[in-house]
């Protein structure tokens, strides 16, 4: 059973870190923060309507709120001239607060508690089992969703590599050759929302941010080209989740929390060591 939890953690960290990489490259890391908080009311409402977890309904609800969040951030910025980061802050705190109120009001029905919202329950998520499609394997319910999410992320990344690259690096140039920045912006935010939602139950709202931001930021420190950065991102995601997992078991503490902390330590180590490997030029 432990091994399923570990595999699950690795898969989630892979999809989160890859989806987060493009937010980090666009300097929109805090948008990960916003989205991961904002999906909560969507999850709860969909749960109250459909009455079960891990359904397409729940996914749809959360995705809707992910997009609502992105929309509101832009709306407050454009129409009411709230500053960019304040707009993010106002939107996600409000949506999250709304979600928490729903959770505490319908605690019995929802079977999510306030704390689980924060650090997930990756160990419980392994309890319910089902057949993995087309095979004989018995795997945890949530595992199936996570695997398909990872596949989707990888697919978007492979097919959209060049579009994501050019619109992240130089949006002005991209649109000058007729590439729609809006499309790729919403695609990358959309993928990030989807990943957040799928990982939310397992690792909670705030640790999703760690998975989305830290591995790719770490990789960025020591990468010269985008493909290099992406594979290093996956490496750091894997080492972080494996080390975090065993450390958490050993200490008997929150698995998701430990993974996040270990990712942070990894980042700090790379940043300290980097000085001796690579010289940045003077501009």
């Amino acid at each position: 059973m432990n091994i399923w939890v570990l595999i699950h953690a690795i898969i989630i960290s892979l999809s989160c870190s890859l989806a987060g990489a493009f937010l980090v490259l666009r300097h929109r890391a805090m948008l990960a923060d916003a989205i991961s908080h904002a999906v909560l009311p969507g999850l709860v409402i969909a749960f109250l309507i459909t009455g079960s977890r891990n359904t397409p309904g729940m996914l749809a609800g959360a995705i809707a709120f992910g997009f609502l969040c992105i929309f509101l951030v832009e709306f407050f910025k454009r129409k009411v001239k709230v500053t960019d980061d304040a707009s993010i802050g106002i939107t996600f705190t409000s949506l999250f607060a709304f979600g928490i109120i729903l959770v505490s009001k319908y605690a019995e029905q929802v079977d999510l508690d306030q704390e689980c919202v924060l650090h997930g329950e990756i160990t419980f998520s392994a309890l319910q089992r089902m057949h993995f499609p087309f095979t004989q394997w018995m795997v945890p319910n949530t595992f199936v969703t996570s695997v398909f999410t990872l596949l989707a992320v990888v697919l978007v990344l492979l097919a959209g590599y060049r579009g994501l690259f050019i619109t992240s690096f130089h949006p002005e140039y991209a649109s000058s050759i007729g590439i729609s920045i809006g499309f790729w912006h919403y695609l990358s935010s959309g993928v990030a929302s989807m990943v957040t939602i799928v990982s939310f139950e397992a690792v909670g709202a705030i640790l999703v941010i760690a998975l989305m931001v830290i591995p790719s930021a770490t990789a960025w420190l020591i990468s010269r080209r985008l493909p290099e950065m992406l594979w290093k991102t996956t490496m750091f995601a894997i080492t972080g989740s494996v080390a975090g997992f065993y450390l958490a078991i050993w200490l008997n503490v929150s698995i998701a929390g430990t993974i996040a902390a270990v990712l942070g330590v990894q980042f700090a180590m790379v940043l300290i060591l980097k000085g001796s490997f690579r010289h940045r030029s003077i501009h």
Partner: peptide
């Protein structure tokens, strides 16, 4: 890295540490 990225890193890593202590 820009300040906003640095914030996201520190925020989530420290929060993770806090979660460890809470459990």
């Amino acid at each position: 890295l820009k300040p906003s990225t640095a914030m996201a890193i520190v925020l989530s890593a420290f929060f993770g540490l806090g979660m460890m202590l809470l459990t």
